[in-house]
Design a protein around this nucleic acid. Structure first.
Lengths: 66, 66
DNA sequence: TCTAAATGTAAAGTTTGTTTTACTTTTGTG
DNA sequence: CACAAAAGTAAAACAAACTTTACATTTAGA
């Protein structure tokens, strides 16, 4: 799975730390997500989509390998 | 987080086992999700939304406590 | 009612998400 | 350049997702 969190952060002018605090996770969790180190839980992705006011599917994308 | 997987299964006339096989998890995983035993990964929820041809937010909902 | 299919549940084990701490590297701005 | 903020990274520890096996309960149909 891939995501466009970094782009959304740029649009909203937020740092990784800002986003982390806004949704209640550690900064490393945001960083790892952006670097595709792991797949976040659905609660996390829903919170991020909600914060950025976008459908979840516009931020998180399935890949062939998923 | 809550979800309407059971309703979607009914609409598509699928058993828990059918759905499990369709998205590549165990039947117990589907059962546990329906009973809100745990929060699925974003890959799982995306696959389910895709299978049922619905926006993810129409199947998985954040709650106050999330 | 009898039976089979479907669902619910539970425990043990493995894998993966997430946190914490801490340090390095990059980037932007004076 | 110099400094600070932001981003990248890494390892250990813990929490949660997911599997497997196995069995009990419910539901639907002959």
């Amino acid at each position: 799975m891939k995501n466009s969190i970094k782009v959304q952060r740029a649009i909203h002018d937020m740092t990784q730390a800002d986003l982390a605090q806004a949704i209640g996770v550690s900064r490393q969790t945001i960083n790892a997500m952006e670097k595709n180190k792991y797949v976040p839980s659905t609660v996390l992705s829903l919170k991020i989509a909600k914060l950025f006011k976008k459908p979840l599917e516009e931020i998180f994308f399935l890949e062939e390998t998923d």
